[in-house]
Design a protein around this nucleic acid. Sequence first.
DNA 1: ACCTGAACACCGTTCAAGT
DNA 2: ACCTGAACACCGTTCAAGT
Lengths: 227, 227
Amino acid sequence: MTRKTAEAPAKERLSRERIVDNALALADAEGLDAVTIRRLAQDQGVTPMALYWHFKDKDRLLDGIAERLLSDVVMPSEGPDARPWDEQFRDLLVALLQVLRAHPATAHLVMTRIMLSEPGLNLTERALGLLSVAGFSREQATQVASHALASMVILVTTEPGRPEASDTAEREQRMRTKKASLQVLPPEQYPNVVASADAFVQCSSEPYFELGVDLLIAGIRGVSATL
Amino acid sequence: MTRKTAEAPAKERLSRERIVDNALALADAEGLDAVTIRRLAQDQGVTPMALYWHFKDKDRLLDGIAERLLSDVVMPSEGPDARPWDEQFRDLLVALLQVLRAHPATAHLVMTRIMLSEPGLNLTERALGLLSVAGFSREQATQVASHALASMVILVTTEPGRPEASDTAEREQRMRTKKASLQVLPPEQYPNVVASADAFVQCSSEPYFELGVDLLIAGIRGVSATL
DNA sequence: ACCTGAACACCGTTCAAGT
DNA sequence: ACCTGAACACCGTTCAAGT
């Protein structure tokens, strides 16, 4: 339980790829706030300015992380698919959700960055195609696609009881504190909140994510039926 | 077009309220990144450390902003309401959406902070009540309520063409640049993306937000029908 | 009760220079 | 092409002290 992260001496040269690797690993382990130019440099045994040869600024590095996430999405295979559009759309969402769930601390980075990378463009192209089959106009399809992506992100980032890059001990403590603060509320004024104290503080992941996807798909289906 | 924000000499004393006022106004004008302990102090003609008497740290100040937003929500009046739960739920969402739209730069602050203030608790209590009428279990109602709140937030923060606290001139330039970068893509590979270039870069707000709310309500209604 | 002064340990980034 | 050194202009925050 030492506070320092174990760092390999990192003999090998720097590269965009290596830098993104480390940034992502660091974010996974300690949260995005720990991802700092200076910290990354230190972990690589290099001067902070060394990174600026590979990335114009920190924002481009974050772009790189987002691109990495998106390139990790394993898309449903191309080609004709006889199934209804909503089933295909769901597969797309789930594929995206898988990688976001693996990297909750960086998931939100993709929201503003999908159109900046090839894998993001591919994902978007597929989504737009399916939504136009569903009967949406260009404008609506675009908005629904954006919203669908964003929904997967917030599903991951707002999961009740999600470990916020802290160790398990103090995380459980925070959960208990929060739960207690809800249970202590006047039950005649907040009966539902008090009764939901548990659910606000933790949940079982699989049903949670399934509900989230169901909600979105049902919404799209519902709206498409009124077109 | 001077670069300095015009600051009243601010003769009056400091207070939590005044600080939050200024922080919110500053965020609205220049984005949340501009909201800095030091900057706020300077604008009030006071030393940075003066703020620490009123707020334990910056995070508590952000809590204060979130609470302010939530207290600005004008809730549909209490008391028995004969209308179906989904109409009532929609009113709740729209009420929240109104204030989030007025403060896009700070909207996301409420996502993790609803349960920390009385207005947030009231909003949540009402939402949970309606969802339990709709037939959801405690766990599901809690998750749906959280997701609904978060959806309103991302609707606001990811609106295409949303002004990111920059002046109109360079904002239009960025939009043109982004649009051009999409239109230049190979149309045989990304037909839908290219055709949607316009829609990714701007939209008319009212239909956009209505679609967003429709999507969510339709989703909840759809899922509730399968219970 | 309310605010100041000085200091600490951080940031991202520029610019000129080394190999 | 790839990296270093020194410096700049910022952060949030602590701690002791003033009124």
